[in-house]
Write a protein that binds this DNA or RNA. Structure first.
Lengths: 243, 243
DNA sequence: AACATTCAATAACATAGGTTTTTGCAATAA
DNA sequence: TTATTGCAAAAACCTATGTTATTGAATGTT
């Protein structure tokens, strides 16, 4: 849990000057701890704040009328939760924690402040929103036109790739604290089929999972298999740091 | 084709003053006509401009390695094409016209101008991006957790709802110029199954289609059936018009 | 007219993934 | 130790949707 995870995250998109850093840091005041399995907010609640994720994993989801559920976002440290609700009075999804986590609440109204004080930070937030769209887009492709094995491999690679933006680790293994029923709800599959799919990936030697621990013996092979190209996560327009 | 479609569209989100209108109108200089079936830009191209849609329908898509295709956005008059590529140097998807259409190109660099000149317009563009996210989110739910009939009904209702924001018409019928293979690629289905699904909806009396013309005898019944709630399209935060 | 092309409907058959159920294995509680 | 609970694996069976083909209607082309 480094001092400012959001700084590290935002800083990976643009050169930040002290004035920007101060403004960003002020969005991480008074962190709040939440336990695993705890619901942070509910679909339909009044949405008056965003959250930055300091540590831990969270996810957003929608409960369907037929008792089914769709998982929509997975949040890791450095992410901002709820940006899209800037345009809405009520929450579009519920959000819950997957692990113990720390989040910092900051009110929507602070966005106006950002828009009026800094062109760079305005651009930066706009760019973050654009990247969120790119992630959703890729998930749409995943759900629409890939097989269960590809879906699972692709989502795993997406998460690994996003973690690599701010962390470095052994490249071919990492912890992914998503139980199979959450993966199922994220990929539009049944839990049983997620299990089958893991054993299939294991039998193919593409990917191994043991108790949330993922191992990928040959990343390139898995990427080819899943049709994963990371440019939608890692390529970005350099933003100018004046003002 | 009214004089400024984008004004009408943006104006439905916030009270615009003359200075904002001037700025927005300047994004609709020199419209360019494109024919149906024409490709406007290709995935991987350098992305240096957005487009506003003056008239006609377009769609964005991704061609997959296995010859398959995923349709990602459907654009109608008033929409902005390519906003999400603000954060990328290359296009994430290809875009093509469904009907004869008119679009206006404006360079990405104009966004900086907007960010530095008007807090209201900054907020507005941010809000448009947020709404685009909400649409993608709902599509994710659609692909992940709904049956083929619900998917088709839901997408139809989404489009009707979006058109109603700036147009008014007979409420239960409209023109939806999407051939079945485009619907299939948007919903992750086969063309054959889209056809089956239309006849099923017809047999249930929920929805009729003849040559791109859609009729919905009982909107409420169809919305209930599809699990469609329009708040993600029509509810919005009022934006302040100072500056 | 004759022909080609596109789009949609239909049928017959194949399969990926869903459902239900049983089992095993940890981790925690009693 | 013995229950209890929560995941995950596996098996058997079911169904929604995919695939391949055929046909017809509408439209465009020569």
């Amino acid at each position: 849990m480094s001092k400012s995870c959001i700084l590290k995250h935002f800083g990976s998109y643009a050169e930040l000057e002290p004035c920007h850093e101060d403004l960003l840091c002020s969005l991480e005041k008074s962190p709040r701890k939440i336990n695993a399995e705890t619901v942070l907010c509910h679909e339909g609640d009044i949405a008056e704040a965003f959250y930055t994720v300091l540590s831990g994993w969270l996810f957003s989801y929608r409960n369907m009328e037929d008792g089914t559920r769709q998982v929509l976002d997975i949040f890791v440290p450095g992410d901002v939760i709820g940006l899209r609700e800037f345009a809405f009075t009520h929450r579009l999804t519920s959000v819950a924690a997957l692990t113990e986590a720390e989040v910092c609440e900051f009110p929507k109204s602070r966005m106006a402040e950002i828009f009026s004080n800094s062109v760079l930070l305005s651009s930066l937030f706009f760019a973050i929103g654009a990247r969120e769209q790119a992630v959703l887009l890729e998930r749409l492709v995943n759900l629409g036109r890939r097989s269960a094995t590809q879906k699972l491999a692709h989502l795993t690679l997406e998460l690994l790739s996003r973690l690599e933006r701010t962390n470095t680790f052994s490249q071919n293994e990492f912890r992914m604290p998503l139980p199979q029923h959450v993966l199922a709800d994220a990929l539009g599959l049944s839990t049983v089929h997620v299990s089958r799919t893991f054993t299939e990936l294991k039998e193919e030697g593409l990917m191994f999972r043991d108790n949330n621990h993922i191992q990928i013996p040959n990343i390139k092979r898995l990427k080819d298999f899943a049709g994963f190209s990371p440019y939608y996560l890692n390529e970005s327009v350099p933003l100018d740091s004046r003002n």
